[in-house]
Design a protein around this nucleic acid. Structure first.
Lengths: 313, 313
DNA sequence: TTGTAAGCGTTATCAC
DNA sequence: GTGATAACGCTTACAA
C-alpha cells in the first residue's frame, strides 16, 4: 500500500508538504502542489482514514446501543440520531445489546478504548450509576428520564400524556383497565410512568394482574389478548405499548369471536391509523436528534420532549 | 492519556511483554504477568482501539449505504445485516445517501481510504459500473439484481411473485390496473420488474399513466390516491409498493367517499394485516444477512432470495 | 514556502 | 521468556 512517505520520496518533497497538499492547506506553491498532485494521481494514492483518526485522537463515530432493532421506538430514535449525526459530520455505529449486561459493558469498554467519541443508550439493562461511571472515558447519553442520576439524557416526557390517555378512558366510562408493557414495572421507567398515571387519574393503584409485560412484537400482543380473554375477560379498555401490538391483540379477539376491549396504541404507526385507534406520539425522532446533540456537546443536561395523545381523525 | 509505553516503563518490562499480557498471549511468566497487570490496573490502562485497527490494517467495520432510513425495506435489510454482522464480530456503520451521487461517491472514497472493510449498497443512484470500479479498494455488495454487471449481490427475486400478484388480480376480474413505485421505470430495477410482470401476465404493456412514481411514504400513497381518483377513476386494482402506502392511499378514497380499488401491499407490514390486504413478503432480513456474508467473504456471487405472495388469512 | 522530527498507540518480527 | 525495534500511516509544532 502506498503511503504518504512514498509520495514524498517520489515527488522529491517532504511528508509535511505532501500532507498540506492532500489536505488542501495553504502555504504551498502552485508548482509544488501540481508536482505532488501528479505523483498522487499516478500512484492512485489516498490517505488512510484510520491513521488520520489515530493522529487526530478522535473518530467522529458515535455508538448507538439498541436492545433490538425491529421496534418502532428504536427505528424512530435511530432515524433522528442519524439526521443530526449527518449534519454534524459524525458516523452512526449500531450496537445491538438485547439488554445483555455483558454486551452493554463491552460497548462501554469500547468507548473507553476510544472506539467511539460518544455512546447513546436508547435503552439499557445496566444501572444508570454504572453507565455514569464510564462518563470519565467519553460522552454518554441515555434516552430516558434519569431521575436523580446526573447523566445527560433526552427522552419523551410521557407522564402527562399517559394521564391524558387514562382521562380519555375514564370519560368513556371504562372501568376495568389493562396495560401492556415491554418490561416489568420494577425495572422500566416507562412502565412505571403508565402505572403512576393510572393511579393519578383513578385514585387507586393498578392491579398487578392488569399489567401484562414482556410485550415487544405483534405476536406478543396476540399473547396478551389471549391472556385477557381467558384470565381477565371483564377488561374493557387497554393501554397498549404500540399500535402494531394493539393490532396483534385484536387478532386474538377476532380469532375468538369476542368483542375486543377499547384499545389505545402508541408510537403513532400506520397500523393504528388503519383501525382508527387513538395513539400516543412520543416524537422519538426529535428525541434522537436531541440525544445526539447532547452526546457531542458533552453537556450534562436533560432534555424532555413532550409526548402527544392523539385521537383518530 | 496513558499508553503501552507508560506501562512498560513503570513496570520495568518492555512494550512487547506488556502487549503480550494485555492480549493474553503465552510466553509470559506468571510473575511478570502479575506485575504488569498491577500497573495496568493502577493506571486504569486500556489499549486504544484506533491504534489497534491501524496496526492490524482493518477495522471490522462494514458501511451500509441507505437512501433513507424510514422505509421498511431499509429497516428490514439493516436488521438482517446487523444480525449477521454481530455474529461475525463486525460493526455496522449507517451511511445516509438520499440517492445523492456525490454522497455515494464520498462513501466509496471512504472505503478506498480503508474506513470500512466493506460497503453494502441497499440501493444506489450511481451506475453499477461505477460501484464495480471501486471494488479494487474493498468489498462491495449491492442489494438488487445486477443483471450483466459482475458485482456481488444479494436481492429479493421479485419477478415470479409480481406475476403471482397480477395473476391473482386477473382471476378476480380486475381489468384496469395501476401500480405505485418509488422510482421511475427508467432507473429502477424494481419498477421494471413490476412492469415486466404485468406484461407477462396480461400480454400487453402497462400504460404509462397507470404508473404513479415518487412514492415512498403513506403521504405519497395519499397523493397517489388523489391522482387515481381524479385522473384514472376507472382503475379497479392497484399494486402498491408497501402496505403502509396502501393505507395512505385508502385514506384518500375514504376522504372522498369513493369505494377504493382492490389494493395489494408489499413488505408484509402490520398495517396491511389490519386491513386484510394481500401483500408480498420479500424476506429482506434474509437478504440483508446474505449481503453481509458476501461482503466479508468477498466472493463475486449473486444470491437471489425468492419473494412470497401472501393472501390475507 | 518548505522541511525536520516528534508524536498518536499498537502489533509484529526477530534476536537473545 | 523477554526485549529492541521496525512497521502501521498520518498530523503538526517548530525550525529554517
Amino acid at each position: 500500500m502506498t503511503n504518504i512517505r512514498d509520495i514524498a520520496r517520489l515527488s522529491g518533497y517532504s511528508v509535511s508538504t505532501v500532507s498540506r497538499v492532500i489536505n488542501r492547506q495553504n502555504y504551498v506553491s502552485e508548482a509544488t502542489r501540481t508536482a505532488i498532485q501528479k505523483v498522487v494521481d499516478e500512484l492512485d494514492y489516498v490517505p488512510n482514514a484510520v491513521a488520520r483518526d489515530l493522529s487526530r485522537g478522535r473518530t467522529q463515530n458515535v455508538g448507538v446501543v439498541l436492545p433490538h432493532s425491529d421496534h418502532p421506538y428504536f427505528t424512530q430514535l435511530v432515524h433522528g440520531i442519524m439526521r443530526a449525526a449527518f449534519e454534524a459530520n459524525y458516523h452512526v455505529v449500531l450496537l445491538p445489546s438485547k439488554y445483555d449486561a455483558a454486551l452493554e459493558l463491552q460497548y462501554l469498554e469500547d468507548l473507553r478504548q476510544k472506539a467511539y467519541d460518544a455512546l447513546i443508550f436508547t435503552s439499557h439493562g445496566l444501572p444508570l450509576t454504572e453507565l455514569n461511571h464510564y462518563r470519565r472515558y467519553g460522552s454518554i447519553v441515555v434516552c430516558e428520564n434519569p431521575q436523580r442520576c446526573p447523566i445527560p439524557a433526552a427522552y419523551a416526557e410521557r407522564q402527562a400524556t399517559y394521564e391524558a390517555a387514562f382521562n380519555h378512558l375514564k370519560q368513556r366510562g371504562a372501568n376495568h383497565i389493562g396495560i401492556l408493557a415491554s418490561r416489568d414495572v420494577a425495572i422500566s421507567a416507562t412502565t412505571q410512568a403508565m402505572v403512576q398515571a393510572y393511579q393519578t387519574v383513578f385514585g387507586q393503584p393498578l392491579a398487578a394482574a392488569a399489567i401484562f409485560t414482556g410485550v415487544a412484537t405483534p405476536a406478543d400482543g396476540d399473547r396478551a389478548g389471549q391472556y385477557f380473554l381467558t384470565q381477565i375477560p371483564t377488561v374493557d379498555a387497554v393501554l397498549t405499548n404500540g399500535d402494531d401490538i394493539a393490532v396483534g391483540m385484536l387478532r386474538a379477539y377476532r380469532r375468538a369471536g369476542v368483542k375486543p376491549p377499547y384499545l389505545i396504541g402508541q408510537e403513532h404507526q400506520l397500523a393504528g391509523e388503519a383501525l382508527n385507534l387513538p395513539t400516543i406520539d412520543h416524537h422519538f425522532e426529535e428525541v434522537g436528534a436531541r440525544a445526539f446533540k447532547l452526546a457531542i456537546t458533552g453537556q450534562t443536561q436533560n432534555v424532555a420532549i413532550p409526548s402527544e395523545f392523539l385521537l383518530p381523525k
